[in-house]
Every structure is written in structure tokens, then in C-alpha cells.
Write a protein that binds this DNA or RNA. Sequence first.
DNA 1: AATGAATGAGAATTCATTCAT
DNA 2: CATGAATGAATTCTCATTCAT
Lengths: 222, 222, 222, 222
Amino acid sequence: MRSPGTVHSMVADPKRIGERREQIVRAATKLFSEQGYYLTTIQDIAREAGISVGLIYQYFRDKDDVLFLTLKLVLENYENEIPAALEKAEHPLERLYVALRAYCRVVDRMRDATVLTYRSTKSLRAERRNAIKEGETRTNRLLEACLRACIAAGHVRPLNDSLLVYQYVLFSHAWALKQWALRGRYSLEDYVAEGVGLLVEPFLTDKGRAALARLRRSRRIP
Amino acid sequence: MRSPGTVHSMVADPKRIGERREQIVRAATKLFSEQGYYLTTIQDIAREAGISVGLIYQYFRDKDDVLFLTLKLVLENYENEIPAALEKAEHPLERLYVALRAYCRVVDRMRDATVLTYRSTKSLRAERRNAIKEGETRTNRLLEACLRACIAAGHVRPLNDSLLVYQYVLFSHAWALKQWALRGRYSLEDYVAEGVGLLVEPFLTDKGRAALARLRRSRRIP
Amino acid sequence: MRSPGTVHSMVADPKRIGERREQIVRAATKLFSEQGYYLTTIQDIAREAGISVGLIYQYFRDKDDVLFLTLKLVLENYENEIPAALEKAEHPLERLYVALRAYCRVVDRMRDATVLTYRSTKSLRAERRNAIKEGETRTNRLLEACLRACIAAGHVRPLNDSLLVYQYVLFSHAWALKQWALRGRYSLEDYVAEGVGLLVEPFLTDKGRAALARLRRSRRIP
Amino acid sequence: MRSPGTVHSMVADPKRIGERREQIVRAATKLFSEQGYYLTTIQDIAREAGISVGLIYQYFRDKDDVLFLTLKLVLENYENEIPAALEKAEHPLERLYVALRAYCRVVDRMRDATVLTYRSTKSLRAERRNAIKEGETRTNRLLEACLRACIAAGHVRPLNDSLLVYQYVLFSHAWALKQWALRGRYSLEDYVAEGVGLLVEPFLTDKGRAALARLRRSRRIP
DNA sequence: AATGAATGAGAATTCATTCAT
DNA sequence: CATGAATGAATTCTCATTCAT
């Protein structure tokens, strides 16, 4: 009956629901990220959130629900931050750069939570898992739109855009997944710059290269 | 005392250890891949392997050990198959192509196990986790050597090779991690071909392009 | 961090802790005494106490903890009953008699638990074992004080008091340890009387013997 | 069918039975004494004895059997050593002294095994337990005979001999049971001397005292 | 006779979930 | 709404015992 993307609560007041859930999910995110889903107990979450065990069950049906909302929140971060960063950018190439950098930054800010996404999505019930995947797809589409705009404007040569977008996503996630290998070798900004060098610039047309040079001169792009 | 990369057994005979462990790990790989580490019980593994619970503990110290050997085996597959595939290839560019395709093929053959790597490495004790990471690093170096040879021979322009190798790795892993999105859109061979188009060819020098054309004509590369 | 003499609980309310622990320890004492520590399962204890298995783990860290508190309680009985019995006694000789009789009576009341002390102290972790031994030492000192007072007052001739006190302790414990041999031959009171005949009276001075006669006449001592 | 004091074996040759059993029991005694019956595994015993697990089951029906024979052996030590020590002694008083000292010496030599007697007798099946108790009773009778001879000869005044014998037994056992308190305070010989002072000499008649003096002068008693 | 791999029942412990207060 | 004590099914791991070699 319930849509797979909805979480049921025993409490009526929506405002309180919002507050409590955030409180709980914040604690859960921390603990799930640190120790993983199965090693984190409801007790742990309650303690971390400074509330009682029972209260969690007022706002979530079960532990799976908590995980679901936790993962959903990570994706929502992606979905919110990228558009926010894009607001000030107009030029298609700038928008692509900005989107990529924004993605890497969210990942950086939520390193552990991003890893959690990889570790724990499969722990969800199948229906829930799909809702998460859709969220990821939506984020991908944000990047895809930027890339396509560049192609449409003739800055990037025609290519398998959807696959390249996947590569962008993986590149961003890698900052979290392979932090043990990457951090220490690169700063975040260097990492983004190198990524752009490998995953964007090779595909620029002459027009694209010229535009990039201009954008760099006007300091719209580092 | 034990090195972190060794698993202890109560049984002396090395031949039997090898057989039994393979039997157990085969079962574990299947179940861990399907249900994840924590939802798979020792009972499950014993049943799947057709042996008793107690016997597992004759060949593994604990459940963590089973996971460790399972993950180690996945990495060993990587480490074995890529060199094997490279044996017949001589030309640096051919070797790079072959290595990449071999990697994607192992991943394809061990799709679930590869996902397991991402999900469950963190479930290991820290020391073990590092042993796994080292295995991954060794695999990366195989690709790195191929890429560097291409650069040294002037087929690929100088670039951030270690980061590009990471893109190769991620690209290969993605075939397992994002199978829900990629399969149905590409056959494995198409996927590899597209990858090469995005992650190798843009970086070829004139010399490299010429060599590639020759290799294709002589059907050394599809 | 924890002192060796403290048992940890997940429950906060001290009153409830007291009640539940008593309930559990009562059950444990019965079962440990009957079947020994290792043959008694936590299930058994839970069933005997009329509660669930999990609840035991809310009030005790592990099975070792239950044993520890059980043994500690036996010793506390010793430590409480002897001083209580002494309250009404003033004359040094009377006090010695009373203390010895009180000791034998506690042992009689807790026959099985006393045996448990001998059987299971070694099952405790070393730190705990010492805490138990200290409890025993404290009890011994109660007797020692009585004996020394008699010597000081000239009722008992100077002798190796600490060793004689050990003999008193062993004599009392024997009532439990060797019940299969002693009960049926003696009533508790006879046993005590005989013990006094062997372990106290031979050491009385003339003054002591006179005092004893007076105390018997006034029925302060049977 | 089997008598409670017999242990069944699958092996026919009695000589071999004797050897193997001794080998096994020696290992078991060590381990049971150190760790107790339940914490010692058959594996442990096999390893300590340098044989295979299966072999133990050729010479013992089950683990209980091993414990039984182990305890029986301790008692047999008592039963053998005391008469052996008595062989050279003739005078009743000397014999009592010698017996007591011999008892303390066996206990000293088998400290841990003596403690084992107290810890683990109850772990035996009831029938076996009785066989052990009978062994203890037989040992007691050895002492009892010595004490009675002293009384009959007028060296010791008439008294509750069986209870005093128990005190002797307890006194000897205490050397093992309370070693944590006694060792360091006394050497074994001092301990025996003090014990004699408390548990024998007070009961000597004038005749007994004279005899004792003579025996000491002739160095038959230290 | 001897071995030791294999079995599986059984034990301690954990933890998601409930519910009386 | 909020609490946290109570439940008990489920899990990991152990170990006495067997039996094919």
C-alpha cells in the first residue's frame, strides 16, 4: 500500500516528525558510516541521538527504515547541492565544470556516507533499493544534462555521453571509496583538476578549447 | 604472531586444506554475494557446501576468516587472469587493450563477488582490510605497467597515469557495481569497446593511432 | 576501569537492579549448588528465576558475573551473620563460642552454596578470584579477633592464633564439604559442641576454664 | 553391570592398558589441575599426552572416565604413601606423627590435584562419586588407626577420634586449598610442626608427653 | 592399535522489537 | 509523546564423540 519511497510514522505532527527524524538520521548516518549497518544497534543510534530506543520506533517502522532514510538523505544532498552550485553558472562548459566540482565536494563532505551507499544499499528490501537507485539516476541526469548541453553547443564532440557521465560519477565516488589511496596524493581541488584533465578536456572541440581558455582568463573556472 | 594475510587451520594436511577451503569459500562466495556477509550464517555456508558447521571451524578460525579468504580469492583471480591474458600480447598498445578487456572479463565472471568486495571489505578486521587493499594495489600496478609502457613507447601522450589507471579500475568495476544500469544497454564486449573509446583513444599520439590501426587490421585488437 | 569487585548493569535504577539481581542470584545459587557452574546454563537460570534469558544480560555482563555475585553473596552472609550474632555477647569466651556457632550455622543454612565456593572459585577470572579471597580473609579476621581477645584476657593460652582460626574455618566448612560423612552422625549443635571440645577447650587456661564453667551455669553457653 | 569403580577399555592387553592409561591420566591430571575439568578438552589431553584424540577413547569410555581415574589416582597416592611412610615407625605416637607428615607431604606434592578433588568430584556421575568418597574414607581410616593406637596405648586421652581425624585431613588439605594464604608464611615442615602443636599435643596424656620427649631426643620425631 | 577428520547438539550472547508505565 | 525494561529468536562457536582409513 505504502509507496516504496515513504516511511511510516506513529506520530501525527509533521513538523515534529521532520525534526525527530533528522535527529535520528544524523546519528544513524554517523554510526552507519563508521561501523556499517549491521554493527550499529538501535541502542547505539538512540544513545548517539540522545533519545530512547522506543522513540525511534515512533518515527520509523524498523531498522531498515532508518537505513533507507539515511541513504535517501545522502542522495538528496547530491540532488540539492549540484543544482545550487549551478545557479550562478551560465556557460555550458562552466556548468559542466561546476557540476563536477560540486559533486566531488559533496562526496568529500560526506565521504563515509558515500561509502555507506555502496556498502549498504543491498541491505535494503528490494523495493527500497530501487528507490535509492532512482535517486542516483536523477543525480546522474543532472550531470548528463550539463554534458549534453556542451555537446549541443559544440564545445564537446559527440560521444557516448551516458557512459562518460558514469565515469564522472565513479570519479567523484572514488574520492570516497579510494580515499586510502587518493588522499595524501591530492588535495580535493587538485583531484578535480586532474579529473577534468582526463575526463573532459580530451573531448573538447576547438570551439570548446577556446571557450575554456576564455572562462579561465575570466576566472570563472580555476 | 600470525601474519595478517594467513588463515589458520586445525588440520595439518595441506592438500586437504586446499580442497576443503575451496569448497567452503565457493559456497561462501555464492551466499555472501547474494545476501551479504551478515545475513549469511555459518549454517547457510555449511549447508551450501554440504558439510557440517563444525568442519568450517576446522579450516577457518572464525567467520571473519571465511570472508577474508573469499575476498582474497577474488583479488587473486584478478591478479592471475590479467597476466595470463597478457602472455600472448607483445605490442604495448595491444597489451593495454588486452589487460583492460581481461579485467572487465574477470569482473563479469565474478560480478557478485566484485560487488562483495565493495560491500564487505570494511567488515574485516583492520589488518585484514589492509591485506585486501594491497591486493587491489597489486592489480592496479599491472594496468599501470601497461599504460606506462605505452607512454614510454610514445603511443600515449604523457599524462597522470596513476589516476587514469584508477579510471580503468573503476570502469571495470562499474560493470559489476552498476550492472542494473549497464547490462541490457551493452554487451560486455561493447562496453569494453566504449570504454576504450573514452579512456584510451583520446590520449593516443599520432604514432599510437597509427599503431592502433595496424593492430586492428591484423585483428590483434577487435 | 571497573573495580574487580563491581558488576556492571545496563539498567540504571539501583532499586530495580537490587531486586532483579537478587532474583537471579537466588536462582543461580540453587542451580550452581546443585549442578555446578558449567552444567548450569543461562537458560536454566532464566527459567528458574521466571524471566527471560536476555534480561539476565541486562543485569550481568556475562555468566562469570553471575557466579561472582553468587559467591560474593555467600561471603557476605558470613560477614553479616557473625557480627549480628556477636552483638549480644560480651564476655570474650562467650564471643568466641558464639562466633564459631554462628559460622557453623551459616554454613549449615547455605550448605550447597558453601560447597560451591570450593568448587567454583577457580572458574572466576583471576581478579574476581582475589576479591573472593579477600572476602574470606575478612571473615577469618572476625574469628581471629575473638580468639585474640580470649588470649589477651588470659582465657586462652598464647598460641598460633591465625592457624587455629584456619582450623575453625575448615571445621565449619567441613560441615558442608563432608556432609555425606558428618550428617547422620551429628546434629549441628552436637557438631559444634564436639568442635569446641577439640579446638577451643584444650587451649583454655585455668582462668578460662573457670570462666567457661560460669558461662555454662548462667546458660550463656550451652 | 560394571562395577562403579572400574573403567572399561576397548583394548585387551592389560599391560598396554596400564601404560596408556597412566600416560593419559598424567596429562589429564596436569590439565585438570591447572584449568579444571570443564575447561580442559579431550584435544588438550591428547596433545599433552602426545597421542591422538581417538586413542583416548580406546582406553576410556568417556571424559567422565578420565576424570574418575584421575581422582582415583590421587587417592591411591594417599593410600600408598602413608603406609609406606609408616613402615619404619613402630611407636604409636611416632606413627601418628609420621602419618600426618606423610599426608601433608603428598598433598604438597599434588597440591593442584588435591584442589581438583574438591572442585571436580561433584562432576562425576553419582556412582563414581561414591567410589571416590570410599577412597577418601579408606585414607581417613589409616589416620584413625594411628590415633586409636595412641589412645589405646594411653598416649592420647580418650576423645572423639573420628572427628579429630577429620581435622587432620582438613589440616592437610588446607595446605593445598589455602596455599595462597599459607605458603610464604610457613615452610611445609613448619606447617606440620604447628599443626601437631594444635591438633595432637594438647591431647597427650602425661605418658604421651613423656614418650614424645623420648622420641624427640632419639630424633625419631623432629 | 592408532589416527584425526568429521559431526552436530548445545551453550553463551546479542539485539530488533514490544509494551507497560 | 517518551521511556527503557523485558522478550526470545537467532547466531556464532565449541567440543565430546564417532568412524573410515
